[in-house]
């Protein structure tokens, strides 16, 4: 991606109950690549118990789509953890 075009950015910071769960979320979410890698850059990291998702994007519409999409996925991950972590 051209540096000069990186006009929009966004950082999501989502706390998890433990670093274990934050790391699981990171691993799960990293598998699916962004569809338009030429227009949006997405980096998912973990800092202690927080899941950090950083976006850089040349097009604000695509940024909105990317952020909405990852939020849907994060909600699904959290719902699954909530329902099945520690299930015997």
């Amino acid at each position: 991606m051209n540096e000069a075009n990186e006009v929009h950015s966004m950082i999501l910071n989502i706390p998890f109950p433990s670093s274990r769960l934050a790391n699981i979320a990171q691993k799960v979410l990293k598998v699916d690549k962004e569809l338009k890698t030429d227009q949006v850059e997405r980096i998912i990291t973990v800092e202690e118990v927080n899941l950090i998702v950083k976006f850089k994007c040349s097009n604000i519409k695509i940024l909105r789509i990317s952020v909405n999409s990852i939020l849907d996925m994060i909600i699904m991950v959290i719902k699954t953890m909530d329902a099945f972590d520690g299930t015997e």
């Binding site: 799960v28 979410l29 699904m76 991950v77 099945f84």
Partner: peptide, 15 residues
Amino acid sequence: LVSVAIVARTLSLLW
């Protein structure tokens, strides 16, 4: 597909 795969991956790591 992706919505369901996300759940499968999460379960795989949780369990």
